[in-house]
Design a protein around this nucleic acid. Structure first.
Lengths: 127, 127
DNA sequence: TATACATATGAACAGTTGAACATATGTTGG
DNA sequence: CCAACATATGTTCAACTGTTCATATGTATA
């Protein structure tokens, strides 16, 4: 469809040439369809947040309940500091939301995507 | 302070005591419902695999096509070694399958869970 | 079987990360 | 305002991870 210059090749070479041309086209198509690097980077960053057992435990403990920092720490036998640090990461990634009530701050999963992602992962793990 | 028994407390304190007892029950219930640590650990390990931009790019490039190592390396502008190393991790986690054809080995996503997990993540990122 | 090609593996190194500890900030009741 | 409680943040350090380079293994073909 574009400029060529390979017509002088042998039949066999031509066939091979066509094959790898087809391959090249596939590769080029995939390259075009591929989302921007930036988006894929963000996607990886998102999964990275799920990719720590402490954070997964915290997320899972909030699967059906809102909890305050202290609850989580006692529930999972973690230090307050550790929980707070991890919650900050979860907040930044928009995986959890929170509201203040007096001295306590109650955290909960931000939306259904979070639950859905965890559930999908669970299905894969439980096979 | 600590060990003086709560009988002598005011009505209000008793109410608070009941409140925190209720909280304790909630916490205990969550603890019981929480999956085994081992499962949550595996779940985190799974997401960890998705949590690297190189691996995400590789997975995404295979979203609709099977590809050989060399294709992926050219497509994503990565070294053959790097791709091969990452594919090993993806194999181990059962995220990709492969078949040999002559000198080449074609990789593809292992099942629909993989696609589903990526898609869910994508939705969350694209907000 | 010798050679080139395709992929896998091993080792080392730089960059990243989570936990622990200390301390700071914020909130409520007295 | 102070004391007690709840949460957040800064720093340090050991452990882990991805890349690179070198090399090995596996496969087809002249």
């Amino acid at each position: 469809m574009e400029e060529d210059g390979r017509r002088a090749e042998s039949v066999k070479s031509a066939a091979e040439g066509e094959l790898s041309d087809a391959r090249e086209n596939i590769i080029r198509n995939i390259q075009e369809q591929q989302p921007d690097d930036e988006i894929l980077y963000d996607l990886a960053e998102l999964f990275k947040v799920f990719g720590d057992s402490t954070r997964i435990k915290i997320l899972y403990s909030m699967f059906e309940n809102e909890l305050c920092v202290n609850d989580i720490a006692r529930l999972l036998n973690l230090s307050q500091s550790s929980v707070s640090h991890q919650l900050r990461i979860l907040k930044t990634s928009k995986l959890v939301k929170f509201r203040r009530e007096g001295k306590s701050i109650f955290y909960s999963l931000d939306d259904e995507h979070v639950r859905a992602i965890i559930s999908m992962g669970m299905e894969h793990v439980e096979e």
